[in-house]
Amino acid sequence: MNVPKHWRAIPERYRMEAGKCRKCGEISFPSRLICPACNHNEFDLVNLSGKGKLLTHTIIRTAPEGFGDFAPYAVGIVELEEGVRIMGQITDCDPEKLKTGDKLTSKFRRMNEEGKTGMIMYSYKFVPDIGI
C-alpha cells in the first residue's frame, strides 16, 4: 500500500468518522457521496461511538497473505448504537468464548505490516466489554 492510500483512510480507521445525511439522518460508514437511503448528497461528519453488539462472527484459521502470523483471530459484524454495522477484528479475548449479542467497544489497535514496505497499519478493532 502506498502512503496516500493509507493517509486517505486515517479519518475512518483512526477516528471512525462517518457521514450523516442532512436530509434523512442516515449514517454511512464509510462515508459516501450519495446517501444509500435517500440519494441526497449533503452530509455532516460525525464520530461513531464505537459501542455496539456482536451480530455474527467467525474465527479465521486459514488467513490471507499478510495475516498468517495472527491466525487464529476473530472477525465479526458489529452493530453500533447508532445503527451502523461495521466489520472488524475482535481482540483482547478468547475468540472461542465470543457469543452473538456480546457488547463490544472499539479500540485503536495495530493491524499488521503491509507488503514489501513494511508500513505498519493501524485501525479500530473491537474488544468485549466484559473480559472473556
Binding site: I60, T62, V75, I77, I86, M87, M111
Partner: peptide
C-alpha cells in the same frame, strides 16, 4: 473495509 481486517471468503460465509 472487509479484506483490510483480515476477513476471507470462507470467513464471510462462515458469518
Amino acid at each position: 473495509y472487509e479484506a483490510f481486517h483480515g476477513i476471507t471468503f470462507p470467513g464471510l460465509y462462515a458469518m
